[in-house]
Simulated assay, not measured.
Amino acid sequence: MSLELVRFLYDIKKSLPQDEVFYHQVLQDIEDDGIASQVYFLLKQQGRLEQTPAFFQFHLQEEYNKGLYQNLFIKNQTDQLLRLFEERKIDVIALKGVYFAEKYFGHIGARATSDIDLLVRIQDLTIAIESVKSLGFTVEEEFIPGHFHCSFSKKLPGSPTPLVVELHWDLVKRSTSRFNINDLWKQSVPVSQSGYIKELSPLHTFYMICLHGWRHNLDSMKYFMDIIQVIDKERKEIDFDHFIQLAESHQTLKRNIRTLSIVYQQFPHLDEIKMFPFKVNHTLRGSQTLKGFRQYWDFLDYQFFSYDTVKHTLIEIGNWLWPSKYEVSSQIDEQSQGKKMYLLLYKKRLTSLLKAVLPH
């Protein structure tokens, strides 16, 4: 349902639905996808907010205001971190977050943010961690083996949810790619007069946001909207030939083509903005046209065949068959230890497969 609404947002030639039932139904999807701020701001920017029912406007504005206040606080915290990194001569790039909202959605409140993601050089990780901790982010979360970031948080007065800072030194797993983060650092651009605070080039911002969408298998409209906004804002700066060359050199080509093919398939108007000439046929996971085993197969296709080499595919199959304890605990609902964790995981997977294959 949110997919249909977002299509209306990006095709202003179409009149918005007049059926109030549609707006009642879509509110839950908007909440699940975390896109209330985006929908509110785009409708307001287009002068079409008043064409929606009053209850819908009220709900969106309420969620937008919450997101705005949260983003203002997170911007304050991000600025403190960046100033400290500048003082300590640590190269740093803010990923996504409040600056992404300002640049690509047009306002700090136009895309709600819940944490702070910073890219640092691997050789600066120790001093970066010390710097983050010095500003009160002292709760260190368990490190995930094979991943490319570490997380620190601090409790906020009056809030049950802590604020998290993630320090990244890569954007994808090295074990299933030939990713070279130095390619991105070399073309990063200093922010204002800063010597150490930088931002990704437009092409690399697009590359990063596509990889981010792939990592989540585009399971929320927010990933579609991020990609669409960057295409719209950076249409002149994005060279798809260079994009493909970069993905080939990093062995991330299949995952990027898969991601953009799905986005362009669901939002055909993008070809009028910036034609993507490398599309292949993919069906959106969770689509109404995908049922039963086909839906399960689509997930397996994403999970194992998004890789450029047989070696990387085999590594990912091995990781899936015998994941780390952290990954197992995140996939099962029950608290357990040892071999029982894996038995519960395999049982859950087998149940899902049987539901997909057997007739209802």
Rank of each mutant, 00 (worst) to 15 (best):
Q38P: 07
K133R: 02
W297D: 09
A356S: 15
I262Y: 04
F243P: 01
L167N: 03
L211H: 14
Q25K: 05
L314Y: 14
D183P: 07
S287T: 03
V139W: 12
N180A: 12
G34A: 04
Y64S: 05
F299M: 05
I90G: 00
S159C: 15
Q245E: 14
L27G: 08
F278P: 01
D33G: 07
Q61T: 10
Q295D: 15
E316T: 06
E140S: 11
S175L: 14
M1Y: 04
R349W: 05
D271N: 15
S330A: 12
R174A: 15
C150D: 10
D115W: 02
L246M: 14
D226Q: 02
I315E: 04
N180T: 09
L270D: 04
L344I: 04
F148D: 06
F22I: 02
H282F: 15
F56R: 04
Q331K: 15
L81N: 05
P268K: 03
I108Q: 05
T259S: 04
Q38L: 14
Q229E: 11
D241F: 09
L184V: 13
S131G: 01
T138G: 12
I257V: 11
K348W: 12
P162L: 15
I257N: 00
D183R: 11
P53D: 06
K254W: 08
A247I: 01
K155Y: 10
I144G: 05
F293R: 12
I122H: 14
S188G: 01
V280N: 15
G109R: 05
F55K: 01
D170C: 06
T161R: 15
F56C: 07
S159E: 15
L290A: 12
L82A: 07
P323G: 10
L345W: 02
V280S: 14
Q229T: 06
N71A: 08
G286S: 09
E316R: 09
Y296N: 00
T252C: 08
Y264E: 10
P160C: 13
M221Q: 13
E327H: 03
P162M: 15
V328N: 00
V6N: 02
G34Y: 01
L260Y: 06
E63L: 12
L27A: 13
K66V: 05
V189W: 05
V139I: 14
R178W: 04
P268E: 03
E316H: 07
T309A: 09
P359T: 03
K348V: 13
Y264H: 11
H147E: 14
I122W: 11
K291F: 08
L200H: 00
H242M: 12
W322S: 01
A94L: 02
V92R: 01
G213Y: 06
F206R: 12
